[in-house]
Design a binder for these strands. Sequence first.
DNA 1: CCTACAATGGATGTCAAGATCCTTTTGTCG
DNA 2: CGACAAAAGGATCTTGACATCCATTGTAGG
Lengths: 146, 146
Amino acid sequence: MISQTAEYALRAVVYLADHGGDPKTNVQIAEATQVPTGYLAKVMQGLSRARVVNSQRGLNGGFTLKESPDELTVLAVINAIDPIRRIHECPLGLPSHGTTLCPLHQRIDNAAALVEEAFGDTTISELLDVPKSRKPLCRFPIAKGE
Amino acid sequence: MISQTAEYALRAVVYLADHGGDPKTNVQIAEATQVPTGYLAKVMQGLSRARVVNSQRGLNGGFTLKESPDELTVLAVINAIDPIRRIHECPLGLPSHGTTLCPLHQRIDNAAALVEEAFGDTTISELLDVPKSRKPLCRFPIAKGE
DNA sequence: CCTACAATGGATGTCAAGATCCTTTTGTCG
DNA sequence: CGACAAAAGGATCTTGACATCCATTGTAGG
C-alpha cells in the first residue's frame, strides 16, 4: 500500500509529534521507531528536503516538525517521500485514451484517489489522540527501560 | 497502487474477456496488451496456477478464462498475482498492539481495505461495457495494421 | 508416429528499493 | 579557538521485482 520508506517516515513524524518540540536526533528517533539507524538518516534527509521537518546540526541539534501536527497530514508525509502515483495518461500510450482513461485504468486511478483522500483527511495529531496504551510506537504497558 | 505484474495480469484477463471464448496464445495476448512476451508467460503461469485462467498446450492451445467475466472481479485477478496486503499485526512487533492496531497502522490498513473493496466490487465485464473507442487496450480509432 | 505448436520451468540478467558504513560539513559549548 | 555533537553526503552491498532466454513437456493434426 505504501512503501517501507514511507512507513518509516510516518513513524518518525509521529514520534516527533508525540515528544514535544525540542530536537530529536536521528539515533533517538531510530531507536524509538525501530528503524535502521543508517537508513533513517536518509529518510530524514528526504523529509528535510521536502520541508516536512527542520534539521539542526551540532550539539543539541536534531530534527523537529516544521508544521503543527494539527496541520500536517499523513498524505503530506507520504508524498514527501514516495508520492501516491495517480494515472494521468494511458500506460499503453494508446492515443485514443490520451485524455479519457479506459475503464480499467480509471478504476485503478480511482483506487489511488481513495487512498489519497483517506490519507489527506488524516492529520498526525489525530493519530495521537488515543489512550496511551494504543498510541503509535508506544511500548506501554511493557515499558522496560524507556 | 498495484504492481506492474498485477497490471499485466489485468490487461491479459481483460483481453481474454473481450475476445470470445477460444484460446489465445501467450504471444497473441502479449502483442495486444503491450506486455513483454517472455514476462507475460510467467504472469500467465501465475494466473493459471491461481485458477483464474485455463491453459491448453499444443496446436490451437492457449489461455481462456476459467470464470465468466461477470463473476470475475478485478480483486480476484490482483490477489492471484500480488495480493493486497492487509495489516493484521503491529509491524513493530509491539506486544501491546497485538490485537488492536495503533491509529497509524489502522489508517494504513483502512486504506488497503478501501482499495480491496473498490476492486472487489468491480467485475471484468464492467470494464468492457463501454463504447468501443474507450475499451481497454483498444487502439481504435487508430487501428493501423490490426 | 512424427512434427509443429504452445505452455512450463529453470537459469540468468538488470535495476531500483532498502540498508550499511564511512567521511565531510556545520553547529554548539566550554 | 578547540573539541565534540549531529546532520549531510557519497560509496557500496543486498534483495526482490521485473525481464530475457532456452530447454523441456505436453498436445493436436497430418
